[in-house]
Write a protein that binds this DNA or RNA. Structure first.
Lengths: 349, 349
DNA sequence: TTACGATGGTAACACGAGTTAGTAACGCGC
DNA sequence: GCGCGTTACTAACTCGTGTTACCATCGTAA
């Protein structure tokens, strides 16, 4: 093939073809205000640009303007774990994508552990590769993030963070969990177990556990430590948690599981031990991952608006980059209790 | 804050601080070969760079070198549908991410319908925003893609495509489907229905349907048109397909569903009609989306290596960009039949 | 001494845009 | 017909980097 760069369309090339200077081409193509170019010249230039299939060079424009029209979405998780989280990730990602694309922005994705790319945030911003960052569930001890917060960098966090200066988009984990447990209480349950979605040092997990306690206390029910089991985001951990609950002898008629994937494991284990859901034990999940409605029984769970979370976060980030004031820097989106078939009144009620 | 750009670290700044020219700084930081810089000067420059927290400007470097170390992953699907596909997307994406990050590449993500961004491929390449493209399941009539193929642009397709010049990474859909159906045949089933994952103009769906036919024919079994139903990627479509199968009266003892999400709907509908799985009817799925192993019964299905697909595609693309010859431009990754509890010999066998 | 080759650099140009300051040509009023 | 203002541009600088071509100094061999 003939060396491709020989034909590469640049403003210079357009200028030659239209018989004007490159400056004029720039004025016309950018519709620069306060510049008078007669319609005839304008048409000539636009025609030339079209004929040459001109597309502005991103690097050159970015260098000249100092802007990239690009944001990065960072999930600080090793790739292996990513595919587990992926159920949720896909929704959030597509929301972000839709939001930023609507503004003509582009989206860089990074699914990489903190230790594998230690200075990722700073490098991206300092190298001018992006105009802003969107971070999902940063670790509580993320020092790099707190530094950025201090410098007023354009960063939005999905989830919660200890740096309170940073704007966040999240759901109200505690209130949602409380609603889930209250549903069980309203059905007549008094001995309600809790299997967490993951370890308690994960802020969302801890807040859902708090919602569980709050609901019990508000109803005057005791919090029984033996009825608390930890999951680790996998179905297998649900299997183990349910077995542990059954083995220890402390009776219960319902389980609040703060993650649907874990809940599937819980239900599987209950069944294998001959415990019927919801006849003997009711189960409430959390997340409403796609397709849990097609299980048998359909899982009662808290619907989490994954796509909206992403959309809102993306939207907010672009606005911050554009210099607009953000009215509410800590957005909490609505969740919804979806009642399906995995919950019922307790056997003896 | 003091205007941040005043302190922005550039090579010029480093040069001043180290008492050398900018050229020398460039030589040292890039380790340019065939240039002699004594260790003392070298140390002075590196120290200055460290003190200033220097990070090279991406746009400037990209403009000068003509490379971006960036690739785009494009899923030509409207965002709404993306979150349905997301189960699969997350795995592929994390594979791509891992692969390109390993080469120091960055990843742009686009989940946008063809009509919403008509010249996306071309714009990305011509604007020099990326060095190459990775496209998932392009439409069969994607003219833009065929043009790129002709020009020898660095593009890798995940899935299949009508442009045979483009390298692809995929699984062998027909052979995998055939294996699934053969599993049923080996169990003794003779009347096997097929519910597709989506419309037949989607190449993967068509190839899986072909595998179904192949298996039947190879076993000397007739292909009964009434036992064929179309899904549309949703659980609901599985519910409807199964109902239709039951209603029409043509008997069957097994169903091959070429997508797990649809299979869940199928199973749900069967149960609601009092048909036991696998006792009355066996069901085989396709995809092995996370957690189907925690269903009751666990779904027998074809495991599809999502992450590996992404990894392989990303790896191949970077190699093409680097100018390496690709030994095998049409990679087919291994799938595996995972036998769980949703399949058993037919009732009368 | 002259020539030659390393050694250790630097000046200058390129990449492709955005942007500021300035200017030639023309029309018009007085 | 002189001055002034508007119209329609353009020259020249900027962004931060990669890269080529060149140059001064020093040591050494002929």
């Amino acid at each position: 093939m003939p060396e491709p760069d020989a034909k590469r369309a640049t403003m210079q090339r357009i200028a030659e073809r239209a018989g004007v200077s490159r400056t004029t081409v720039s004025f016309v193509l950018n519709n620069t205000p306060d510049v008078n170019i007669p319609a005839k010249t304008r048409q000539r230039i636009l025609a030339a640009a079209r004929e040459l299939n001109y597309v502005p060079d991103f690097a050159a424009r970015s260098l000249a303007t100092g802007r990239t029209n690009t944001v990065a979405y960072i999930v600080r998780t090793p790739p292996a774990k990513l595919s587990v989280d992926s159920l949720f990730l896909g929704g959030v990602l597509s929301g972000i994508s839709a939001a930023v694309n609507a503004y003509g922005f582009h989206l860089l994705f990074y699914g990489i552990a903190s230790d594998a790319a230690p200075n990722l945030y700073t490098s991206l911003l300092r190298s001018q590769r992006v105009d802003g960052l969107l971070v999902s569930w940063p670790a509580a001890n993320d020092v790099e993030l707190s530094e950025l917060a201090g410098q007023g960098a354009p960063v939005v966090v999905h989830g919660s963070t200890t740096c309170d200066d940073l704007p966040t988009v999240d759901i109200d984990n505690a209130a949602s969990a409380r609603a889930a447990v209250e549903h069980l209480i309203n059905l007549g349950h008094r001995r309600i177990a809790h299997v967490t979605n993951g370890p308690l040092d994960h802020p969302a997990v801890a807040m859902r556990a708090k919602g569980y306690r709050d609901a019990l206390e508000a109803a005057g029910l005791p919090v029984i430590e033996q009825l608390l089991q930890l999951g680790n985001f996998t179905g297998q951990s649900g299997v183990e948690a349910a077995s542990a609950l059954l083995d220890q002898g402390e009776p219960f008629t319902a389980i609040f599981v703060s993650g649907d994937v874990v809940a599937l494991g819980v239900i599987k284990a209950l069944r294998q031990r001959g415990v019927r859901v919801p006849h003997d034990v009711s189960v409430v999940g959390f997340d409403d991952i796609p397709m849990v409605s097609y299980l048998e029984p359909g899982l009662t769970t808290i619907h989490l608006p994954a796509q909206e979370l992403g959309f809102h976060a993306g939207d907010m980030l672009v606005q911050i980059i554009s210099g607009e004031e953000v009215s509410n820097p800590h957005v909490l989106l609505e969740t919804e209790l979806v009642v399906r078939e995995s919950t019922a009144p307790p056997p003896t009620a």
